[in-house]
């Protein structure tokens, strides 16, 4: 690093370096720092009293409860799916594996509005299963199950995507060793595989959770936005904003922004931890090599 900076052939001239840095920092200040700061600034503009009233008002509380409920159902479902998909994909060889991996990515590529649309076309009153559902008096669209489905749809790649590359790297040696020593399949999973993947799993869960709590497009198509009943936090923000209750809208938004900040902090901590562990492993390998050579 030091050498690179001193050698004029391997580093940009000082003015280029400063221009690049200044451009980058200005760009990020306008596009990242300012929006984040604006949320908290607007939320607290009319004082803490109004802020507190906005987030403890019954409809806001209902929205928070609904969001937590939706997350509590959809995230565990996606964790289970992620683990199953990763296990099948990384521990076995089979045809069509690449197709399956691409299909898992699909929700990342399509618009969240499409996610909402297909749920309406499937389960809505005029959808495929609509008449049957009506007969059995079970509502999905414009009710909580639809919100859960929409949220699960848009967040379902997160866990699988984190686990697949990590488990691929680990291979199957440890599992095969455990099995040949007489462990059952479940024992192998809980004692061998799970401890090895727990940090990637946590990483995936955190990203999945952040997206699930904040999902707007898909949920707004299927929710019907009935206050106190099918209104999640992001939808509540929209309603307040459209009614020009800006302080209240930003107050609820600030809770979501706070969640985003917490997500980024935990994510960074996990990444630093992984980097440190990798460095340690490399060092240990080097030390072993030296020992053997000595």
């Amino acid at each position: 690093m030091v050498r690179r900076r001193q050698n004029p052939a391997l580093a940009e001239p000082r003015w280029v370096r400063y221009t690049i840095l200044a451009t980058v920092l200005t760009f990020l200040a306008f596009f990242l720092v300012m929006p984040l700061y604006a949320v908290f600034h607007e939320a607290l503009r009319q004082g803490l009293g109004v802020y507190w009233a906005s987030i403890t008002e019954p409809d806001a509380v209902k929205a928070i409860q609904l969001t937590l409920l939706v997350v509590a159902i959809s995230v565990p479902m996606n964790v289970l799916f992620g683990i199953c998909a990763a296990w099948a994909i990384t521990k076995f060889q089979f045809r069509g594996k690449q197709v399956l991996i691409s299909l898992i990515d699909l929700p990342f590529a399509v618009s969240p509005v499409i996610a909402g649309l297909i749920i309406v076309l499937m389960y809505g009153a005029h959808g495929w299963l609509g008449p049957w559902l009506m007969e059995h008096e079970f509502r999905i669209v414009f009710a909580v199950p639809g919100i859960v489905l929409a949220t699960a749809f848009v967040t379902f790649p997160f866990v699988a995507r984190e686990l697949i590359p990590h488990m691929q790297e680990q291979g199957t040696d440890s599992e095969e060793a455990a099995l040949s020593l007489g462990a059952s399949g479940w024992q192998t999973f809980f004692r061998v595989t799970l401890p090895a993947i727990k940090w990637s799993l946590l990483y995936g869960v955190i990203l999945c959770n952040a997206r699930a709590m904040g999902e707007f497009g898909a949920v707004s198509v299927v929710s019907g936005k009935i206050r106190g009943l099918t209104n999640t936090m992001p939808l509540h923000v929209e309603i307040l904003y459209n009614e020009y209750q800006l302080a209240a809208a930003f107050a609820v938004a600030s809770l979501l922004a706070g969640l985003a900040v917490v997500t980024l902090v935990v994510k960074s901590l996990l990444e630093w931890r992984a980097a440190r562990e990798q460095a340690r492993a490399e060092q240990e390998g080097l030390a072993q090599l030296q020992e053997r050579l000595a």
Binding site: L25, L28, L32, V33, M34, P35, L36, A38, V39, E42, L207, A210, R211, M213, G214, E215, F216, G217, M233, P234, L235, V237, E238, Y241, L246, A249, F250, A253, L256, A257, L259, A260, V261, T263, L264, V265, K267, S268
Partner: peptide, 25 residues
Amino acid sequence: RVIDALVDLPFALPTAVAGIALTGI
């Protein structure tokens, strides 16, 4: 390090929140 972490903000910040903040600015 803070800036590096902050680059992911658009992934973590709910889109509706980003929308109203940018509109205001």
